[in-house]
Computed example of a mutant assay.
Amino acid sequence: MGTPLGDFVRVKRDSIQPESLGLPVHGRRRSPGLRRSDLAARAGISVEYLTRIEQGRDRNPSVAVVNALADALSLDPAERKHLRYLTKITGGECAAHPRPAPPPRDVRPSVLETLRLLEPGIALLTNRLGDILAHTSGYASVMGDSGLLDAEAPNLTRYVFTHPRARSFFADWDDVADEQAFDLWLGPSAASTEWFTAELAPLAGPEFTRRLNGHVLPRRGVLRLSHPAGHELRLRRETLELSSDAQHLVVLLPADDRTAQAVDQLRHQPHGRLRAIS
Results as ranks from 00 to 15, higher is better:
T90W: 06
G92R: 09
G92M: 10
E93V: 13
C94S: 12
A95I: 12
H97Y: 15
P98E: 15
P98L: 15
A101K: 13
P102H: 12
P103Y: 09
P103G: 05
P104D: 12
R105F: 06
R105D: 02
V107F: 07
V107E: 05
V107T: 11
R108A: 12
P109H: 12
P109C: 14
S110V: 15
V111N: 03
L112I: 08
L112M: 09
L112S: 06
E113P: 05
T114Q: 08
L115P: 00
R116Q: 11
R116G: 14
R116C: 15
L118M: 12
L118E: 00
P120H: 08
P120D: 09
P120Q: 11
P120L: 12
G121Y: 00
G121T: 03
G121E: 01
G121H: 01
A123W: 00
L124C: 03
L125K: 05
L125R: 06
L125Y: 06
N127G: 06
N127W: 08
L129F: 09
L129N: 03
L129G: 04
G130V: 09
I132R: 04
I132A: 04
A134W: 00
H135N: 07
T136D: 00
G138S: 05
G138D: 01
G138M: 02
S141H: 07
V142R: 00
M143H: 07
M143C: 08
M143S: 05
G144T: 04
G144I: 01
G144Q: 01
D145W: 06
S146A: 08
L148N: 03
L148W: 07
L149M: 08
L149R: 02
D150F: 11
D150A: 12
D150W: 07
D150Y: 04
A151C: 10
A151W: 11
E152D: 11
A153Q: 13
A153M: 12
A153G: 06
A153T: 14
P154G: 11
N155W: 12
N155P: 10
N155Y: 11
L156I: 14
T157H: 02
R158Y: 03
Y159S: 05
V160Q: 00
F161G: 03
F161R: 04
T162F: 05
H163D: 09
R165K: 13
R167M: 06
S168F: 12
F169G: 00
F170L: 09
W173S: 02
D174N: 07
D174E: 10
D175T: 11
D175R: 07
V176F: 06
A177T: 10
A177P: 02
Q180S: 02
L184S: 14
